[in-house]
Every structure is written in C-alpha cells, then in structure tokens.
Amino acid sequence: NPEVYLAFADHRGRPFFDLLTRVTAREPRRVVDLGCGPGNLTETLASRWPGAVIEAWDSSPEMVQAARGRGVEARVGDVRDWAPTPDTDVVVSNATLQWVPEHMELVVRWAGRLAPGAWLAFQVPGNFAAPSHQAVRELAAQQRWSELLGDFPFREPDVVLSAEGYAGLLTDAGCSVDAWETTYVHQLSGPNPVLEWITGTALHPVRSRLSDADWESFRAELIPMLDVHYPRRADGTTFFPFRRIFVAAHVC
C-alpha cells in the first residue's frame, strides 16, 4: 500500500541510506532497484549516479504506478525472474528479499552473473521474532481467524539469515562482503502507530484474505495485543525497536 507505506517514509528510508554508504561504485553504468516500492528511494539513486541507467522492479502494480508517478521507469515483475544485464554495476534491494523464501539461492546466483567489480547490496528485516509479529501469528491462529485466513503465509522467525550467514554465502560465491545488523528504535507518534506500520507491509497477506468488516475486526483485536508490548509513553509517542540485517557484497 503506497500511501500507508509512505506514512513512515523517513523511518523506512534510513536503512536504505545506511546500506548505500557502503557501496562505493563511482560511475556505474546500470543501477538496479529490486523491490522499488513507490519510487521515493529509487529517485535518490538517479541523483547519486546521474550517468547511470536506473532499472526498477516491484511485484506490486500499485507500487509501480506510484513510482511511475514520480518519474521512475519502474516495471511490474517478480525478482525471481530478474537477471543482470552485462552492464549492471550496482544491484540494490531494500526490505524485499524477506518475501522470497528462496532468496538465499537468488543472491548467490546474481553474484555469479555479475561482472567483477559490481556491487550487490541488500537489507532485510530481522524482526520476525519481534512481539509485533508474534502477536499477529497468535491472533491468526485463533479458530475464527484461522478458518478465514486459511494457509496464511505470515513470515516465521527463520525466513532470513543472520549477517554472518549472508556473509558466508556471498564470500563463498566469490565476493568481498561487508555484513552487519542494526536495531533502530523508532519513536512513532499518532494512534496505534505500530499497527499502522505493519499494516503497510507485514499485514498485507491478512488484508488480502479478509472482507472489509473482518479486516476492521482483526485490527481491533490486534490493538490491545500490541499495546502490551509497545505502550504509549507519557509524551504520547511509542518506541518501536526494529532489527535489520545489511549486506554489501563486492564481486571479485
């Protein structure tokens, strides 16, 4: 959901820029953004590397439409179908690969097809064991909701590797790897800010399976479960810790 996603654009954008500080390509020919979302961050790639061709993919038609509205030449596509062209010098993926169960194989394949000197940089959330996600899994497992949600594909805690795990994969694939993790403590404002945050991304599979009325009921039941773990502070804000894993791999 581009509108909901952009409500937290500043918080969501910070990991993107932290990742790109480790990519030192000077004059890349082609820069690819896999999972470009609404294009607000893709725009900055064109500013940083004005001589590069910017290629942008996202699986969501709504996100691609929003990106095109910003002037980004985005296309609808599954990252599993993407392959680098010979002039691809930088590949960036921000908070996308966690949605692809076989992404470990994908990044190794991409590294093997990129030319020496190219960069593969990605960031994935590492918060699938966080209270926010645990609360959603617990609620979805209740009889009423399990019957409606069916094979609800909410992400389990082991869908991403550790920083060390990715470093090992890509080092073995012939890359020089910088991998690390950071836990951001986002200070959010407004009513039910954690619910609104996960509504823009993690709860999308729930929303797509429920009627409007059931969706509002699910949200209403989730609010007190989230409030237990993310209480509102005296100043009216809420702290939301969010762990992320970063990898910047330089193909040797």
Rank of each mutant, 00 (worst) to 15 (best):
F17A: 15
P224N: 07
V160S: 10
R48D: 12
Q142F: 01
L106M: 13
W119A: 11
M104T: 13
E181H: 13
A129K: 09
W215P: 01
E181D: 14
E73M: 08
A83F: 07
F8S: 05
S146R: 15
P15Q: 08
D227C: 02
A234P: 01
G13C: 10
R29K: 05
G200A: 14
L161M: 13
Q123S: 09
A95T: 07
L45T: 04
R48E: 14
S47N: 06
T85P: 00
D18T: 08
T85Q: 11
R219N: 00
R155T: 07
D172H: 11
W49P: 10
V76P: 07
D18L: 07
V136T: 13
A115I: 00
V64Q: 04
S208A: 15
P2K: 03
L222C: 09
E196Q: 15
W57Y: 15
G77C: 03
M63I: 01
L222H: 04
E105A: 14
F246C: 08
T42W: 10
S47A: 14
L120Y: 11
M104V: 01
G126S: 05
W197N: 11
V251R: 15
D81L: 11
V64R: 06
W119G: 12
N1T: 15
L188V: 08
D78Q: 06
S59I: 15
R68T: 08
T85V: 05
A129E: 15
E164P: 09
A249N: 12
A95Y: 04
H133V: 08
R207C: 03
S60L: 03
D58W: 12
G37Q: 10
C36E: 00
R22N: 06
P153W: 04
V159M: 00
V53F: 00
E102G: 11
G190A: 13
D81V: 02
A173L: 09
G126T: 02
F16C: 06
E3T: 15
A46H: 10
E196K: 12
G174E: 09
L169S: 11
P191W: 05
A56Y: 12
D33W: 10
S189F: 06
P2D: 02
A52Y: 09
R233C: 02
N192K: 13
G77W: 03
D89I: 00
D151G: 07
N192T: 14
V251I: 14
E105C: 01
V108G: 07
D89A: 11
D212E: 15
A111F: 02
A202I: 00
A118D: 04
A95H: 07
V92D: 03
E62Q: 09
A129V: 03
N127C: 08
D10E: 15
R80M: 06
D214M: 08
L6M: 14
A234T: 11
W57R: 14
E221P: 05
T44Q: 11
N94P: 02
R80W: 02
W119S: 12
A140V: 12
F154V: 13
E138C: 05
F17V: 10
Y5R: 12
V72F: 06
W82Y: 13
Q134V: 13
Q123V: 07
A83T: 13
F122M: 01
V91N: 05
V23H: 04
A52C: 06
R207W: 03
V72A: 05
E73P: 11
T42E: 06
A140M: 09
Q123W: 01
E156A: 15
R70S: 03
W110G: 07
G51P: 05
P2L: 01
T85D: 09
V76W: 05
P84W: 04
F218T: 09
R243T: 11
G150I: 10
